[in-house]
Design a binder for these strands. Sequence first.
DNA 1: ACCGCCATCCCTGAAAATAGGGATTTGTAA
DNA 2: TTACAAATCCCTATTTTCAGGGATGGCGGT
Lengths: 211, 211
Amino acid sequence: MINVLIADDHQMFIDGMKALLQDLPGIKVVGEASNGKEAVVHCKDHSVDLVIMDVNMPEMDGVEATKELCKTNKNLKILGLSMHRDRHFISDMLKSGASGYILKNTGKKELLDAIQTLYKGETYVSEEVNKILLTSFLKDSAKYEVNEKLSGRETEVLESIAIGLTTLEIGEKLFISKNTVETHRKNLLYKLKAKNTAELVNNAYKRGLIN
Amino acid sequence: MINVLIADDHQMFIDGMKALLQDLPGIKVVGEASNGKEAVVHCKDHSVDLVIMDVNMPEMDGVEATKELCKTNKNLKILGLSMHRDRHFISDMLKSGASGYILKNTGKKELLDAIQTLYKGETYVSEEVNKILLTSFLKDSAKYEVNEKLSGRETEVLESIAIGLTTLEIGEKLFISKNTVETHRKNLLYKLKAKNTAELVNNAYKRGLIN
DNA sequence: ACCGCCATCCCTGAAAATAGGGATTTGTAA
DNA sequence: TTACAAATCCCTATTTTCAGGGATGGCGGT
């Protein structure tokens, strides 16, 4: 019997997934979490074999939660999950310790396949995910990969940009010089590989950095 | 027996929802659709009582599909569904003929409640949705409401902006003068109530106009 | 003790966007 | 046919952003 925990910030998705897995033999949903922190806490006091982990969650995202969980529990398997086919989500999750990854547009057959494969100790990525990773490796992208992790201040600036504040206004809001904000902007453009503000906000959305 | 069709662009959500509804007495899932067009087609040849309709879908979104369906089938009930708590989604769906609206972060109890209420011919909105609508009405927002529907050209320009193209580049791409693009930009800023490009892209995302 | 990252600050010139006016044509629905 | 929305084009002045350098102090890890 595989003890599964579902971590997703949409209750309806959790309920659906629970109903889906309930019918399957050999799988038992033993818990749910609406963010990464809840998932970590739950796994500490309960016996969980596998976590179905959404990447984008409030409080603590799937990547951080995966790191945390893999540090403390070596036997725990984690199956990454997301809507967007962004290679950063996938690679971040796998690097953090996830053993598999599927997209939300895949069907239940693949989901079941993934769970069983992971439980056997193997790795599973859906065909589509595999293709994303492959083309990502073949391109130059991986070579010139920068550390896209944003600092706390950068995230604050990014969010301020997204709500339409100008450089000057952001400086006033955060009590720093506009020059400093300019530096943060430049670093944001570099880290998110954006040519201008519009693409910056767009890429931030795609990578789940905002909302 | 209520014949239900589920329209959502994520297969996993459909599968979960099907599993969820399967267990419930009096409800039968008779079909699924991954976009609005499929939903419309399916309702034409099959007997469907109620559609659970996601707002954000490719090809044809939930709002358009709802309009289409309500035009042809007066008895059909439509339950709107979305992740984001944007009042535009809600009001658009209800104006288009949906009889109810819930968010994806609500649980299965409310879902079942919504379905049964709609089937009785009544209206259902979840508590959270109700709050969103209420505060929206109390604020000035409704008064100064403009027609936010974007024209085809405006959508093209918006998408070009989001991928980082400048006004000049967009003009070259669409074979129009940069002045024309400037006009489209101004109209976009007005329609989406944005102060600048960053907020424009942000609002476009929130309203599901891109991706 | 040193290195790298973070956060802070400064400068200039060029490019782009925005505010604020105009204006014409075309199609279409009332 | 008339009215309206959509799409096109034009102008000036101002604000904002971007590219390109540069610099300093703090803090955590090796």
